[in-house]
Amino acid sequence: MTVIGVLGLQGAVREHVRSIEASGAQAVIVKRLSQLNDIDGLILPGGESTTMRRLIDKYDFFEPLQEFGKSGKPIFGTCAGLILLAQKIQGQDQTHLGLMNMMVERNAFGRQRESFEAFIDIKGVAKEYEAVFIRAPYIVEVGEGAEVLAKQGDKIVAAQDGHYLACAFHPELTDDHRLTEHFVKMVEESKKTLAS
């Protein structure tokens, strides 16, 4: 069975586990480095990116997470996870894992009172998809090779760059599992490729 980890240092971990299981894969909460060896793909959940980064550094997850991505295993970043994945963050020099070719902006829709839900289309994945945006970032631009999957108004809110997937909203907070199913398929395919 395909095993997908959810980085469990802080944030909406339980909801992603539920969503992975509903999509037909096995879910593991990753709190220790050694667990990275047991999984085929990884979700970086929503939460506070500054908190997660501190805990990533504290427990020496930083390089192993980068290596995990560079080995070809898929990573899906949602909200704070998207910020962790980005190569560039608008208005700050420091980036985090820097794996995915895009520039993002934090809290780009405003504060909590501006948080919202809306129906969006995700290219090749889902039409009329109910997306929940909470103090959400967005993708300012994607670099070469990366593909825009969804927009809210004129803002990019989902993209894919090879085996990296990122969205600014929270697929784990609804019962619509189509985007997680898409990621599970990415992981299943990479498993075949990496095995051959």
Binding site: G11, R14, E48, V132, F133, I134
Partner: peptide, 11 residues
């Protein structure tokens, strides 16, 4: 949206 914000604070 309101409850989800608190979900992100978990842990």
């Amino acid at each position: 949206v309101k409850r989800g914000m608190a979900e992100m604070q978990k842990g």
